[in-house]
Design a protein around this nucleic acid. Structure first.
Lengths: 194, 194
DNA sequence: CAAGATACGGAACACTGTTCCGGATGCCAA
DNA sequence: TTGGCATCCGGAACAGTGTTCCGTATCTTG
């Protein structure tokens, strides 16, 4: 399905120079808008920041999810790649799992509205959902399997766990009384065999 | 602050008969709309179901939260009252806590979008937030205290727990792969001392 | 440099919530 | 019963979203 030629060599048909420039500008503008107003920042705001028309956004990023994925692609990738590394470096699979989940939580809680968007059943967010899941569920599954094999935790569905952790991150950062990290820890503790 | 004269005697000034009739009609229409489209059902839909103008909704229920609270008031009340009852009837405080949380979860997962609305930081939902918290946090606190006193669980902030459970219920019912009840169980299990 | 391909801008549309006020309606006193 | 007033209703109008569309501008290529 997906090929891996993103941004390397010439993918068959080179885009026009102004188009490539605008895409980059748009990405920066979106990142700034996301920081300022969350991932729900109005399309017109992002367009204004980038100094382009709204049509230009939709040409480059047909859905809001495409834009979000493009903005955070690198961080998602880094999180995914950290999984196997942690598994190799940690003393136990469970420790690796905890650290990896913390990485995921840290990523989510610092992006206003991202956790909520991740759970939205709005059709516009399907791509976002899909990208996170495709990339992170296998990693989580690997960590869980290792911890189960080591007899540290009970078996658990990676999709469900990731989604639960994502849910717990909703609203974190906008309410000092709500500590998402603490609850996620509790959730992982509940996984533990004793 | 809040007095308890809701619907009894004459509260000082009786409303006009048509106003009372409309309020009742509106409540039924809203309940139906919530079932059909979730608590985010468009105002115009609710008005159309009730056969009234949108202005009439806003006169009776200034914010969407007021409408939601009015629709679910009885169920929230029942949940709150079940707390002490469970504590009295159950073999252990922990068992009572688990049963009570299940009650809360069952309530939330059967109302499309309610859990999400509960966490929304939108100003229109403040009343909703406040009502749930005022009514349920003390109950949850009581159950937690009893379980802590019995040495069954570690101390936990009732507000945080309730909010976490609410978060875990977001999206439940619209995705067969996501089992909110299972995750809530895990969370409560993480509370357990061992 | 000309012609065709590509991309841009922003007006226009559809759908939200929300406000506002002229007019209809119920209530009460005479 | 009836008059008059306080109350309430309806829906047009406004404001803020996302999304589409096409005339125009720009780039690329021969």
């Amino acid at each position: 399905m997906a090929d891996i030629d993103s941004g390397s060599e010439r993918p068959v048909a080179r885009k026009r120079a102004d188009a490539r420039r605008n895409e980059k500008t748009l990405l920066d503008a979106a990142a700034a808008a996301f920081v300022a107003s969350g991932v729900d920042a109005p399309v017109r705001d992002i367009a204004a920041r980038a100094g382009v028309g709204v049509g230009t956004i939709y040409r480059h990023f047909p859905t809001r999810a495409d834009l979000i994925v493009a903005v955070y692609r690198h961080q998602i990738e880094a999180c995914a790649e950290a999984g196997p590394a942690l598994l190799a470096d940690s003393s136990t699979p469970h420790a690796a799992l905890v650290q990896w989940i913390n990485l995921f939580v840290d990523f989510l809680v610092t992006k206003h509205g991202l956790a909520a968007a991740l759970q939205s059943d709005d059709a516009a967010f399907q791509t976002l959902h899909a990208h996170f899941l495709d990339r992170l569920v296998p990693v989580c599954d690997q960590l869980l399997d290792a911890a189960v094999a080591a007899g540290e935790i009970r078996p658990m569905d990676a999709y469900g766990l990731l989604r639960g952790v994502g849910n717990l991150c909703i609203g974190a950062g906008s309410d000092p009384r709500y500590d998402a990290r603490c609850l996620v820890e509790l959730l992982i503790a509940g996984l533990r065999l004793h």
